[in-house]
Amino acid sequence: MSVIEVRGLRKSYGQNDAVAGVDLSITQGEIFALLGPNGAGKTTTVEILEGFRTRDGGDVSVLGIDPEIKGLQARTFRDRIGIVLQSTSDAGDLTVRETLTHFSGYYTNGRDPEEVIEAVGLSEKAGELIRSLSGGQRRRLDVGLGIIGSPELLFLDEPTTGFDPEARRAFWALIGSLRDAGTTILLTTHYLDEAEALADRVAVINRGKILEVSTPAELGGRANSLARVQWEFNGVMQEEMTAEPTAVVNRLIEQFSGEIPKLSVSRQTLEDIYLSMVEISEGGAK
């Protein structure tokens, strides 16, 4: 079942075509990552889907609703989605528990605040004022607020900016558990390893157009790309790009008769693929 359907989406600001004909189809229960450089049209696209911005053209359906609706219908729409924006910086004069309890009351199906506090790992901070939280803890509260209404669809905008590696892992586990519970998630992120760890599918967007939609493992022909074998010989690093890394390693085993110095075999990372895709699209457009 399709949760988000977008056909030919367009949005311009003056002469600038921020979104120039985007098609997207996101199915229920998947984590879909939208990747792209700053100014690529990510934010505009997502904000149109969230109902924050109007569009100039194209068809948009989110949970079967056109997000441009107003009034009571808009309330019904927002009752079914959760939005985690970039963090707020208010004075934070409420406690974590007060904030989540209050927001829970906005929804028809608001979750138990204690359960959400537990889920985002803020149990020890539940009674503390928000102003006393660290950046990472504030971010977890943001996510808690995003899921407090039991959303069918969750928008996550740069969710782990400012997290330490441990907190990121914990956060990824939380997002995974939401997906397992059936929540559809649209993620925008700058971290390619995050997209790789979380996303079922990724789309790369640049200059207002979708370049490719694929799984992280297959994006940009990654699955069939050449592997890089590196080793040291006479104190100098050697490198070979090959479709058959095993054969290369076998050859090296014979050559060295023992441990091969500084041996490594690697595939292109998602980041390598992504950067070359963006570069090609920039070159093509110039």
């Binding site: 309330r75 009752d79 939005i83 924006l85 707020t88 910086s89 208010d90 028809t108 607020l145 209404g149």
Partner: peptide, 17 residues
């Protein structure tokens, strides 16, 4: 100030009228 802090945008994303 609430607008600058992003508090209003957050409220806008909820079903609160």
């Amino acid at each position: 100030m609430e607008r600058d802090f992003g508090s209003l945008k957050r409220l806008r994303g909820t079903p609160m009228p």
